[in-house]
């Protein structure tokens, strides 16, 4: 890898880490996700500083083309992440649903006691 490419990759990794820090500090990223992304950022940084590491790992698994190793790792990670988000989304939907049901039952009780319909909100 040429020196300029090396520098570019290091700068990019640093930028990613800086952005994650920014998100966590401004509390726009929950802690559980920040840990995940920090480890990713760190992994990227290590690879950026020591690109030979990728070659070493590739040799270990008998992969002739080191970038393929990187792609494989990245793809599997994204796949697992997407699956995790689907799971998380299902859970959130369940909770929203439960809240909506509870709301309907409570509203029914309130309306029954007041003897009139509450005005519809934003819907």
């Amino acid at each position: 890898m040429s020196t300029s490419a090396h520098v570019l990759v290091i700068v990019l990794a640093a930028a990613v880490i800086a952005f994650i820090i920014h998100l966590v500090r401004s509390r726009r990223l929950r802690a559980k996700y920040s840990v995940l992304w920090f480890s990713i950022g760190l992994g990227l940084a290590v690879l950026a500083v020591f690109p030979d590491l990728l070659v070493w790992v590739s040799d270990l698994f008998g992969i002739g083309y080191p970038p393929a190793t990187f792609m494989l790792l990245a793809l599997s990670f994204l796949l697992v992440l997407a699956l995790h988000f689907s799971w998380e989304l299902s859970r959130l939907e369940d909770r929203t649903r439960a809240l909506a049901e509870e709301y309907a039952l409570l509203r029914e009780e309130v309306e029954e006691r007041l003897g009139q319909r509450m005005p519809d909100g934003s819907g």
């Binding site: 649903r97 909506a100 049901e101 709301y103 309907a104 039952l105 509203r107 029914e108 309306e111 319909r117 909100g121 819907g123």
Partner: peptide, 12 residues
């Protein structure tokens, strides 16, 4: 009358 805040589908 129970009023759901948004559409849940018949199951909900």
């Amino acid at each position: 009358v129970a009023t759901l805040p948004f559409n849940l589908g018949i199951g909900g």
